[in-house]
């Protein structure tokens, strides 16, 4: 369960600081896959980053009483001067999996299929190699809730098929909160939905209703 209580967030910039999210109250249960929908700039990614703990809210709080992942396939979470193996070790240690560290390394090495590059510094990687590694790393741990920001679209054709399958298997056993503009993926993966609009969040038990009200808001908007 993730409790979001009176959450507000704004970014400060030179033109003032408008609220991105305002007074959001949500309870996201563990066993449900949730899709986040809304127009660009509505704060979907911001909400996901806040849930992941990569960013702090200006007001309110988020209580996670289960294991929540970092956003799947997050290639920014690598230290460029360290090798792929060292990065994987680091993340495994941070998550307290010292006993399973060899198992995790083996899994990631096999999954990412980047060969000898696994022992080269990350800064020498191509963006495809980075995202392969990042994706493998996310799937190596058992989380209660996974977070995903358009993550299923990485790598070449063969890798994509494999990644999608592995992703679905993992998500089938745990919860998922996903940000995506592809309604096919959302309808396919999710049961519930959150529609973000005008700094506020609306919870729908059915993802189709969330998408429907998103569509309705586009029609209502003055052109």
């Amino acid at each position: 369960m993730i409790h979001i209580h009176e959450l507000s967030k704004r970014y400060h910039n030179h033109h003032g600081s408008d609220w991105v999210l305002q007074d959001i109250n949500l309870e996201i249960p563990t066993g449900v896959n949730v899709g986040l929908v809304g127009p660009n700039g509505a704060g979907k990614s911001t909400l996901l980053r806040l849930i992941a703990g990569m960013d702090m809210p200006d007001r309110g709080e988020i209580i996670r009483d289960c294991r929540v992942s970092w956003p799947i396939g997050l290639a920014g979470g690598f230290q460029g001067s360290m090798t792929g193996r060292q990065n994987v070790k680091f993340v495994a240690r941070v998550h307290g999996s010292d006993q399973e560290i060899l198992k995790i390394i083996e899994f990631v090495e096999k999954f990412a299929e980047i060969g000898k590059a696994f022992d080269e510094p990350i800064k020498t990687y191509s963006s495809g190699m980075r995202s392969r590694l990042a994706f493998g790393l996310s799937l190596a741990f058992d989380f209660d809730i996974y977070l995903s920001d358009e993550a299923t679209s990485v790598g070449d054709r063969a890798f994509k098929a494999k990644a999608t399958k592995a992703f679905r298997d993992k998500v089938g056993q745990a919860g998922l909160i996903i940000v995506s503009h592809s309604e096919g993926i959302l309808c396919d993966l999710c049961q519930a939905g959150i529609f973000l609009n005008d700094c506020h969040a609306h919870w729908f038990d059915d993802i189709n209703e969330a998408i429907a009200s998103y569509h309705a808001s586009i029609k209502l908007a003055p052109t």
Partner: peptide, 25 residues
């Protein structure tokens, strides 16, 4: 994976960072 106390989390972060920094240094 089971629940970890804040102190356990901090300790594993320090351990991970120490290994990383020691190798880099």
């Amino acid at each position: 994976m089971s629940y970890r106390t804040p102190w356990q989390v901090t300790r594993s972060v320090w351990h991970a960072l120490f290994m990383r920094e020691a190798i880099a240094r």
